[in-house]
Design a protein around this nucleic acid. Structure first.
Lengths: 165, 165
DNA sequence: CCTTCCGCTTGTGATGTGCAACCGCTCGTC
DNA sequence: GACGAGCGGTTGCACATCACAAGCGGAAGG
């Protein structure tokens, strides 16, 4: 995974792939963005894909170094909280498109689909509302909050799909 | 890269990552989509990232198996042409979002950026025009062609950026 | 003191990657 | 009908990354 190597090319698509295009980085970010997980153990224990702890530690370190996450300094032995940065928050449209694609072209669970469906139906307007919400939670932005939050709506859709199916 | 294993989860985002979320699959698809490369040697020789032939062979094989490419049957020793399938054509919005992100948050070449900029400015309307164009070239669709084609416009933007910078 | 939780680190074996050389096949030319 | 060029790959090797399981030191609570 070429740590600190120069990029293979200056193509913006390749740059994106080099930043988070491995098997785990996007999964970690997805769980922070949509699952609201902020701590190491939260990310590891609740991971539906079952990430190994050494991989998680490595990815968190790398994502901090590449400017997609920040880590609040803590004394050792204390819970360290990870926060999204603005570049990471701007991955929401990427997640939405990936979700729409996976939804259409791969066999997926109808319950986990619910979020992708809602995110697709909401379109860019919903994405930006969600991004503002993330800025409030992770960057301390002072933007006015709406109720119910986008994440609440996404999770409500997930619960509804779980019960009905 | 877990060949023929069951997916790690049924999440649509994870499904997308498992389909093309490695270091090379999207690069290969990008060169077919935007670079109009259809043959093995074309993909290998013109690759700006310098893909190795064994990796290219493996990715082409895997993309065919997973339904993103088709390979025209040919006798050995003869040029084999690869074509995009409908699922692969529907990756255009994903490429657009990845390009927009890379453009904003990573250092990239202004010339290679030109395509991403145009694709972003054009928005979903341009994406769908481009997808129709790809359907014509790769699936033999009978949709009416427009002139100039989207790829011509993308390449013109690239050349303009190359000359002016 | 002892247990529990915290963020990791370490070791091992399996899998994926980059690099360069090589392979069999076919086609056009002499 | 031998030759070289071009075709889509394959092979071998060294190295990086991977998953899995176990363990670590510090902090907090009883």
């Amino acid at each position: 995974m070429r740590e600190a190597n120069e990029p293979r090319s200056e193509c913006p698509i390749n740059a994106a792939i080099e930043a988070f295009g491995d098997r785990w980085s996007l999964i970690v970010l997805r769980d922070i963005v949509f699952g609201d997980r902020r701590y190491f153990r939260e990310l590891q224990a609740n991971s539906i894909e079952g990430i190994a702890s050494n991989i998680l530690a490595d990815r968190l370190k790398r994502l901090v170094k590449s400017g997609l996450l920040t880590r609040e300094d803590t004394r050792p032995g204390q819970r360290a909280r990870y926060s999204l940065t603005e570049p990471a928050i701007q991955l929401v449209p990427v997640f939405a498109q990936l979700g729409s694609w996976g939804l259409r072209h791969r066999p997926t669970s109808s319950a986990l689909n619910a979020r992708a469906v809602l995110l697709e139906q909401g379109g860019p307007a919903l994405w930006h509302e969600f991004m503002d919400e993330l800025r409030r939670e992770h960057l301390g932005s002072e933007l006015p909050a709406r109720s119910p939050s986008v994440r609440e709506r996404l999770n409500a859709a997930y619960r509804a799909a779980t019960n009905s199916s």
